[in-house]
Design a protein around this nucleic acid. Structure first.
Length: 419
RNA sequence: CGAGGGUUUCCCGAGUGGCCAAAGGGGGCGGACUGUAAAUCCGUUAGCUGAGCUUUCGGUGGUUCGAAUCCACCACCCUCGACCA
């Protein structure tokens, strides 16, 4: 839980730290916010909608910001969107979200709470978890539109960037309401807990402003908002997207090895951003690593991959992933933690099992066709030997010490063990 | 409610009776070059233990030797009207 125990920065205002590391994208009142951080323990909140049953790297970015804030004595309120999750945020999306049932939302909420425990320290009220289902689910429609709805100008909402896009393709009234819900959250948190700030990804800007305006008109108080850069590659694409979807923090959905490899393979141009935002290495070290050139920068990527994996999965698993990667790519080392599948010896008795069938079974290819194609194009290597025969049958005696190391393409490895 | 336009393979988008498993692009995958990078180039990209068969062009029926293409009905989306305001 103690993510950094050395002096991370020369700055003693967390605002400067976040700025130095490139997190801050937009602020409502830069100077006031900075001052506020200097003079009091600020209660701030970040909302997380339970759109899935576990967290991905985008959530993790926000968590990191909370960790910094907490380290500097401020108090994070983790808002779980049990209410807003029922609606779905249209910001940054071009299609309508799949609607979730109340049960699914609740279940996801419960999972979320447990997951945040791993990264945020909730002891002694150093952080607080809240769920907006508590005040959104039982809202009375008439009361709500009279008390809250009257503060919102449709004219202005339509001009907001987040709706503009959707006006072209369609936006349901349900989703249009999302902004009101999120704004109302801010008001509730302000009234109930004295929460003065809202954080979020940059796509949340309009929603955050909505909340600030609402608190001003309802309570006559100034509250603040701040958004953070979304993790994007140098080409502006969202980072953390893999072929299989998001880069999950749960190893059952994204294995530790795959997670490590994702960061090991980021583009050169993204190394600096990733190091500064996703690790707690001091900036001096970040600068040093990011300025490495040519093949040297691989060292930086290795450190990046290790550090991020360590934060998410713990040191031990990060080391295992690193060892596995080194063993596979640099030779030697121990193969213990290489991704593997154990298959019964009986399957390889007699004539054995067709290669294509085998690689399909262990998930290296999605179909036989893809398997045949891979072999035809020279993309499959077994125990160091390129497979040229599409109809090759794998038998027991081809295993080396009960093991078969299969390599597909340039960097996908899989071990098959007799069991 | 009326008139017109649309729904195509992972995505975008061509295709208006057989030459269509369906152009082109994107993405993915494999290869070459490299540094487990990027850029570039080449190949490949429905399924089936594989050459011939099966499924695919919103859904369901129909016409035809033959349909993504024609007809009917249904669903959804867009545009313009009408109604309402």
């Amino acid at each position: 839980m103690n993510f950094f125990d050395f002096d991370i920065s020369e700055h003693d205002n967390v605002f400067d730290v976040l700025k130095e590391r490139g997190f801050i994208k937009q602020t409502t009142h830069e100077d006031e916010i900075r001052e506020l951080f200097a003079k009091e323990k600020v209660k701030f909140y970040t909302g997380f909608d339970p759109t899935a049953d576990c967290l991905h790297i985008g959530h993790f970015m926000q968590i990191i910001v909370m960790i910094y804030m907490q380290k500097y004595g401020h108090i994070p309120y983790v808002l779980i969107g049990g209410g807003t999750g029922m609606i779905g945020d249209p910001s940054g999306r071009t299609d309508m979200r799949q609607m979730m049932t109340k049960e699914t939302v609740m279940e996801n909420c419960n999972n979320f709470k447990k997951l945040f425990d791993k990264y945020v320290d909730f002891s002694d009220n150093k952080a607080v978890a809240v769920n907006n289902a508590d005040w959104l689910w039982d809202l009375n429609y008439i009361d709500f539109i009279r008390d809250i709805g009257r503060h919102f100008s449709v004219n202005r909402m339509l001009r907001a960037e987040c709706f503009k896009q959707r006006l072209e393709v369609g936006l349901s009234f349900l989703e249009f309401n999302y902004m009101l819900m999120q704004s109302y959250d801010f008001l509730e948190l302000y009234k109930r807990h004295g929460v003065k700030m809202q954080f979020g990804g940059d796509d949340q800007w309009s929603n955050i402003l909505g909340g600030i305006d609402l608190v001003r008109s309802e309570e006559g108080q100034q509250v603040y908002g701040m958004t953070f850069a979304l993790l994007t590659t140098s080409e502006g694409k969202k980072m953390g997207k893999t072929q299989k979807g998001a880069l999950w923090l749960d190893e059952r959905k994204t294995s530790v090895y795959d997670f490590y490899q994702y960061w090991r393979n980021v583009e050169d141009a993204d190394v600096r951003t990733c190091l500064s935002m996703l690790t707690f290495l001091p900036m001096k070290e970040v600068e040093r690593l990011a300025s490495l050139e040519g093949a040297e920068i691989n060292k930086a990527k290795e450190i990046l991959a290790f550090e991020v994996t360590k934060l998410v999965h713990g040191k031990e698993k990060a080391e295992q992933a690193q060892n596995a990667a080194r063993a596979l790519f640099e030779g030697g080392g121990n193969m213990e933690n290489v991704p593997k599948t154990v298959i019964s010896e009986a399957e390889f008795a007699g004539d054995g099992m067709g290669v294509v069938n085998l690689i399909k079974q262990i998930g290296l290819v999605p179909s036989n066709g893809e398997g045949f194609r891979t072999i035809e194009q020279g993309g499959l290597t077994i125990n160091g030997e390129k497979v040229t025969d599409k109809k090759l049958y794998i038998t027991k005696d081809m295993f080396d010490d009960g093991k078969l190391l299969i390599k597909k393409g340039k960097k996908t490895f899989h071990m098959v063990e007799l069991g």
